[in-house]
């Protein structure tokens, strides 16, 4: 068998317009503490928020260290195609991901040609996935909120 970067990946589970995407990594022995330090930095949250803003299709994202900090989970919900997401993933989040995954076993580096295969190899599809409002994308929600706020302003001014 040959490998190919475009080989279809296992998709995440889908509910309405949104998909889940979950990755599991093994932490390099002794690197759990280094990872915890990264997540506790204030700049990490700021950067994450900035990237979420840029991508515009991420509902949420979480990192979880478990099994005595020997394993790491990344889980997120996003609007649209997995294929597209992984593409943007590999292109837009280099620094954050590089800083974290450097502590994961076998990580090839964000600039490695095999980065996509590496991520795919660590994805596990959810057995069950539910959303309260499956048809609302992040963009829809932002717009709905803007409309509500404008309406509220109007009511306060003229109500």
């Amino acid at each position: 068998m040959t490998t190919h970067p475009e080989k279809p990946a296992r998709p995440g589970a889908i509910d309405g317009r949104t998909s889940e995407f979950t990755l599991f990594f093994k932490v390099k022995p002794g690197h759990g503490k280094l990872l915890r330090d990264i997540f506790q930095q204030r700049s990490f949250d700021q950067l994450s928020r900035q990237v979420t803003e840029q991508i515009g299709t991420l509902h949420d994202a979480r990192w979880v260290l478990f099994d005595d900090d020997t394993r790491l989970m990344f889980a997120t919900s996003f609007d649209g195609d997995w294929d597209v997401y992984i593409e943007e993933f590999a292109r837009r989040i280099p620094q954050i991901f590089d800083d974290i995954l450097i502590h994961a076993e076998d990580y090839p580096g964000i600039n490695a040609p095999v980065i996509k295969e590496y991520i795919v190899a660590h994805q596990v599809t959810a057995c069950s996935y539910f959303r309260a409002i499956p048809d609302a994308t992040v963009r829809d929600l932002r717009r709905a909120r803007a409309v509500y706020e404008a309406y509220d302003t109007l009511v306060k001014a003229y109500g």
């Binding site: 475009e6 317009r17 299709t57 609007d79 649209g80 195609d81 294929d83 597209v84 593409e87 994308t137 963009r139 829809d140 717009r143």
Partner: peptide, 25 residues
């Protein structure tokens, strides 16, 4: 050079959907 990333993406995300432009479906 990439049917999936180019043709299929444009067809699926930009032609057959509206989310990228805030136009829902």
């Amino acid at each position: 050079t990439d049917i999936r990333r180019q043709f299929e993406f444009v067809k699926r995300q930009w032609a057959n959907d509206g989310n990228f432009a805030g136009l829902e479906t």
